[in-house]
Design a protein around this nucleic acid. Structure first.
Length: 857
DNA sequence: GAGCACTGC
């Protein structure tokens, strides 16, 4: 057993162990260098506090987990992988008997899904809690939940360097706080008068000049991004040469070899220009001078938009202290802050934790599958923004992962896959389409670090002709990687590949492929539809369609042929990056995006065909309006996917037409276009209509809140005694075809239990000023209804679009009656002419429900 | 003209 050097933490270990005897949780506050990571877990083991269970040490990074395990094994004089071990993605050295296990937070999440009460675990230590990563917040809250409900014996220890310990201790039931000294050398803090007009890069040059003189060691400069690092590097050239120092850039996208070069000892003084990697992930030896730009680029999720954006912000006080501390690791140092002392107090005390900033689709699905039914009531350490939770639920719903707020079979399969729910959906759909290998490539590419070189002028489409245009940037990259694995080619059409990064990606692809292929099919709709191997375009199409299911809300339409500008679902303008070659398809997915202030910038796009869009989400609307200024009727027909207009046309019927004629014409066009006669799903019309029937039994009225059916429904209903009458009509098919996705969702969700409409209901018709000219009328008057239905106010407003401002209710009834009596026979005649094989009953109400809307047998 | 840092059975 080697003699161990004494560390500051050793002093407080007895106090910590004593506290754990009577408290199930403890917060340990100890600065960097105190030795908490490697000394606390063995002390707990040796004190017998874990009894026969496992001690888990949670580390934020794989590297840290491995290093901690190695160090603990060394200090105990045992072989790594037996009593002491580690488990991280792609690598593990542990057995079932391992008592002290260092893991990453992702591994704990997986364990929580498989073993919700963590039955073999006695103690969990959350290291570096001040980093407040999303997974750390999530796993702490889940562990606390377990402790409070079923495992009062589970011990939780939160270890943190800088975080104010009070709030965590309070969260853990007012548990004891133990504080340890650190081993940092003093760091002199200097501020600069703000010269706000001067760019950060200029200030860095003069600051480096200062510190080269006033400190002896290496310098570390914190800058917000790669661009600033390159600019500063260019500017520091001569200065560094004079001082015989070397300038070294350091950021996460550098290859490991380049990073090692920065970290390895050099004969010359080093000036390291770094991003935030140097704040948490790596330590550079011999730094005595830190220059802090005070800036950082952070990912922020915009719940309104449903997209991430990268924003340049000021750092927090906690972060500035952390950065300054980097100057005092080996000897006293200096930190030069490029802002004024009085500005320091204006900085946020702590960095906004990740859980307040990012997309929560993954965590929300984790919790739902774990058995939490109400995410908003979940006892988080710090609650996420309610809008972000709502956005997550809506995305998960549109991905089919949850329904009625509860996980579906597909959702439960998705949670098993270690990727964002979108990509999990892509994997499952790819598997169903018989192209799981390619779907796995796509998911790996969209999750892991980009393996293609950044400066990629070869792929600037400006210099390339139509022969080089592509249908999908994403598929191009997949093909490049397939070529790399088959033939080792790094020089691909999608750009130059880093071989190391590409091999790592292949590892991830293989892992995902294994997971998705090995999944026990839990229901029929997750099994492959066909086992026939696909080739060529059929194979491409299969995976591109799967991609659409992962990004249903990211469909965009090009403004003009070959143009880089487009509009995305939600109405935002988008612009394709120069490196995108997707210039031909009119519709495409915005797969890799960066939301700026104005347009959304799209780095990778992927074309889609119009008929890939799910039929129940494509909505055909015909608005018939009366333009009172010109005294003309105008009929406008629109096809939409959500709010994205796919095509539209407006016609002005010949003067003298009345609303009924236009309506009849519109109805025919609508039918013609919207009913997929040969689609077996048309039979489900009856199902939908039965739903309607149960919750509007006697009302005699349909209830919809958008414009799709209003042109048809009033006419239909005017002849009906009840909705049961309606669903026997061939028109029922049109009804189903015209239901929007949202309406179907609404029906699936609300009907039939929650809404009851008593007989003789009153329904108010809402006036929509922006859809002028529309007259607000009361259906109560129109249909002589007596009671008010028990439905949420405004939930089911009915809008009649066809009415000009001068219409009176009596005229409306007359108009509708005349449509039914005079025009419908004509419509039926026309239907017979166009669809001679269908049986169109003379009396539409006499057909049985089993008639399936007149569908061909 | 547009790229912080991590991470996953």
């Amino acid at each position: 057993m080697p003699a161990l050097p004494s560390l500051p933490i050793d002093v407080v270990l007895p106090e910590l162990l004593a506290a754990l005897q009577h408290s199930s949780s403890v917060v340990l506050q100890a600065p960097t260098g105190a030795g908490k990571t490697t000394r606390v877990p063995p002390a707990i083991l040796d004190a017998g506090l874990a009894e026969s269970g496992q001690i888990l040490l949670l580390e934020p990074r794989r590297l840290a987990a491995r290093a901690a395990a190695r160090r603990m094994a060394f200090e105990r004089g045992v072989t790594l992988g037996e009593e002491v071990g580690y488990q991280v993605r792609f690598d593990q050295r542990c057995t079932r008997q391992t008592r002290l296990l260092a893991i990453t937070d992702g591994i704990l999440l997986r364990r929580l899904q498989d073993d919700p009460f963590l039955e073999s675990v006695s103690v969990i230590l959350f290291d570096e809690f001040h980093e407040r990563s999303l997974n750390l917040d999530l796993t702490l809250a889940m562990a606390r939940r377990v402790q409070q409900t079923v495992r009062p014996d589970l011990k939780l220890i939160v270890m943190s360097a800088t975080l104010a310990a009070g709030p965590v201790a309070k969260y853990l039931g007012d548990c004891p706080i133990i504080t340890s000294e650190g081993r940092l050398h003093p760091v002199e803090i200097r501020y600069r008068p703000a010269i706000t007009s001067q760019p950060v890069v200029d200030q860095v040059v003069s600051a480096v000049d200062d510190l080269l003189i006033s400190t002896p060691g290496n310098l570390l400069v914190f800058l917000p991004g790669v661009r600033e690092i390159q600019q500063a590097g260019d500017r520091l050239g001569t200065l560094a040469e004079q001082a015989k120092a070397i300038v070294l850039p350091l950021y996460g996208d550098l290859s490991p070899e380049q990073q090692d070069r920065v970290l390895s000892p050099q004969t010359q003084r080093k000036i390291v220009l770094a991003t935030n990697v140097a704040e948490t992930s790596v330590t550079i030896d011999g730094v005595t001078g830190v220059i802090d730009s005070g800036q950082v680029r952070q990912m922020q999720f915009d719940p309104g938009l449903g997209l991430d954006r990268l924003v340049l912000t000021k750092i927090s006080q906690a972060s500035s202290d952390q950065r300054a501390g980097r100057a005092g690791r080996t000897q006293p140092g200096v930190c030069l802050r490029l802002w004024m002392e009085r500005e320091q107090r204006g900085l946020a005390a702590d960095t906004e934790p990740e859980i307040r900033r990012v997309d929560l689709a993954g965590p929300v699905l984790e919790l739902l599958c774990w058995g939490e039914s109400d995410i908003t009531a979940f006892p988080w350490f710090e609650a996420p923004r309610p809008e972000a939770v709502a956005q997550a639920i809506s995305l998960l719903t549109s991905l089919g992962a949850i329904k009625d707020g509860q996980p579906t079979d597909i959702g439960r399969q998705m949670v098993q896959l270690p990727v964002h729910p979108r990509l999990a959906r892509l994997l499952i759909e790819g598997h169903r389409n018989g192209v799981s290998d390619r779907a796995a490539w796509m998911a790996a590419l969209l999750t892991e670090r980009d393996p293609f070189e950044r400066a990629d002028y070869a792929r600037k489409s400006g210099s390339l002709g139509p022969a080089h245009y592509s249908f999908s940037d994403v598929l191009d990259r997949v093909q490049a990687l397939e070529e790399f694995t088959a033939r080792g080619r790094t020089d691909t059409t999608a750009g130059r590949l880093h071989p190391g990064a590409a091999r790592f990606l292949q590892q991830a692809q293989q892992q995902l492929l294994r997971l998705v292929n090995s999944d026990r099919p839990t229901s029929a709709n997750t099994r492959p539809r066909s086992t026939q191997p696909k080739q060529g375009w059929e194979r491409d199409e299969a995976v591109l369609k799967a991609l659409l299911t992962a990004f249903p809300d990211r469909v965009a339409r090009r403004r003009e042929p070959l143009n880089r500008k487009g509009v995305m679902v939600g109405g935002r303008g988008i612009r394709l990056a120069d490196s995108s070659l997707v210039l031909q398809p009119e519709l495409f997915l915005c797969v890799d995006t960066d939301a700026g202030q104005g347009e959304i910038f799209v780095r990778q796009a992927s074309g889609i065909e119009r008929d890939w869009l799910p039929a129940n989400q494509v909505e055909v609307t015909i608005d018939v309006t009366f333009d009172s200024t010109q005294e003309k009727i105008v009929a406008q027909r629109r096809t939409r996917y959500f709010d994205l207009i796919l095509d539209e046309s407006a016609t002005t019927p010949p003067s003298g037409s009345n609303v009924s004629d236009v309506l009849a014409e519109a109805a025919l066009k609508n039918l013609d276009r919207a009913i997929p006669w040969d689609d077996p799903a048309v039979s489900s019309v009856i199902t939908r209509v039965r739903c309607l029937k149960t919750w509007l039994p006697d009302c005699g009225l349909p209830a919809f809140d958008d414009s799709t059916l209003e042109n048809l429904l009033p006419s239909l209903c005017s002849g009906c005694r009840s909705f049961a009458d309606l669903h026997r009509a061939p028109w029922a098919a049109a009804l189903r075809a015209s239901l929007t996705y949202q309406q179907q969702q609404f029906l699936d969700r609300e009907a039939p239990e929650r809404i009851q409409v008593p007989s003789g209901s009153q329904i108010t018709v809402h006036y929509e000023p922006e859809r002028s000219p529309i007259l607000a009328v009361r259906i109560q008057e129109l249909f002589g209804l007596k009671e008010t239905p028990r439905i949420a106010a405004g939930r089911i407003p009915v809008v009649l679009h066809l009415l000009g401002p001068n219409y009176r209710p009596q005229q409306i009834t007359d108009d509708l009656k005349s449509f039914w009596n005079n025009t419908y026979p004509e419509v039926r005649k026309e239907l017979k002419r166009r669809y001679p094989k269908h049986s169109w009953p003379e009396d539409p109400w006499s057909a049985t429900p089993e008639n399936k809307g007149g569908r061909r047998a």
